[in-house]
Design a binder for these strands. Structure first.
Lengths: 233, 233
DNA sequence: CCAAAAGTGTTGTGACTACACCCATGT
DNA sequence: ACATGGGTGTAGTCACAACACTTTTGG
């Protein structure tokens, strides 16, 4: 048993897992679905890229969701609303620092414009990386490539059923914007007419009266997410 | 800080959550969806009903799934295949034994015929209870009523999309059996013809050549789950 | 014959894909 | 005018719920 595990005791005197939060932050940037990775300063995997994460602090956190928010604030210097719990993974080989490591994994979607994540505690640098690359990358720290893949699959299922993960979009957007982003997340083209009919049937979005976006060509109606739309069984 | 938390340390000297597994075991018994509850012998909530559960043992368990299997074996004296991870919940007020309690919650479906769960360690008795009652019951220990509700909702979604949770059925069954069980889980009647068409389209089941079940009336074809059926996008 | 459960057909609705087509605008 | 992206319309297919119907058995 490693020396740093000696004192981990429970009410029944059993040592407890080393319990962490990991966060998969996804965004569509440059027409490509990307994931936010942090370059580690400390061992293990010093200098390698990993998901931003941190230890659950029972003295600071009122829930797992609060833990995730604190970790994001410390590591990225920002807040990310609408994080969802993805899964929990645990086992003896996951992290060389501990005999047994447990991670609660969260995922979040965000748009990146204007927001700059700043490398915080124990992070040398932050970078966005295409998910396709990240999932294939054998040099990613811990089991993080697998966690990214799970987050992407879950997000694709949500988009498939037109549950638009909040945070992915600006408050105002055109239907073209929305379709382009969904296509990037799914990694395939969608039919414009079909896509719009689905949006209409399920009341996913509502037009913003009078607001248009002018560009080089024909101006487009601006929409917002309809927060109260009903899911179809 | 409670005395039993003094020694819970991590590699960074932070105390760790009191980490447990809870298991929601569901079954259709007497034409009613029921959940397996354990009467607690020890404080807290001694004498109250709770989900069977236990501490994660880093010296014994090779993964969270292995933890769940061990807990089920110790508490129920049996094995339950096909447990799925449901969610993780954590916070300072969940369990009076610890400053901060984390539970990884699993769910499983089973058929109950022939199998007898035997009350194991720290359990006075086991009983099946209708989920409708259990969810309403304000005397259930911890936050377990809420966990049961989440397990039931997840299971209903699976049945809705005809992902039949394994373990729910005998190896051989008639389409009438299958429909009746699905109806009990969902809490509503299904149309026979529609139900069968969906099963056929998605190749969920396959007939067992020649095998029939004779009863009081017309015999019925026996089926088995087709393990390799394809999910529809 | 009758009750009960197994199993099949039929019809209308609505969502989906694929594709064609019109509209408004800046250059 | 025309390229570009915004936006609409149509036709065929498929899955669906609802409901009626036929079949096979024991009594």
């Amino acid at each position: 048993m490693k020396n740093n595990d000696i004192n981990k005791k429970t009410p029944n005197n059993h040592p407890m897992p080393f319990t962490r939060i990991e966060v998969v932050v996804l965004s569509v940037i440059d027409n490509c679905l990307q994931v936010l990775l942090a370059k580690r300063t400390d061992a293990p995997y010093a200098g390698k890229w990993a998901l931003p994460g941190g230890v659950v602090r029972i003295d600071l956190d009122s829930s797992l969701e609060a833990s995730a928010q604190r970790v994001v604030a410390e590591r990225l210097g920002m807040t990310i609303p609408n994080m969802e719990q993805l899964c929990a993974v645990g086992g003896p080989k996951r992290d060389p620092r501990a005999d047994w490591a447990l991670s609660i994994v969260f995922k979040a979607l965000m748009r990146v414009e204007g927001v700059t994540a700043n490398a915080g505690k124990r992070i040398e640098a932050l970078a966005w990386r295409s998910v396709a690359e990240a999932i294939e990358d054998r040099t990613l720290a811990f089991d993080h490539a697998e966690l990214i893949e799970r987050a992407v699959n879950t997000t694709r299922s949500q988009i498939d059923s037109l549950v638009i993960p909040p945070g992915l979009l600006d408050e105002q957007f055109t239907l073209g914007d929305l379709q382009a982003i969904c296509e990037q997340v799914l990694g395939k083209k969608l039919d414009k007419s079909s896509f719009r009919r689905k949006l209409a049937i399920r009341n996913v979005v509502e037009p913003i009266g009078g607001a248009m976006r002018g560009g080089a060509f024909r101006p487009a109606q601006l929409y917002r997410l309809n927060e109260t739309y009903e899911h179809k069984g």
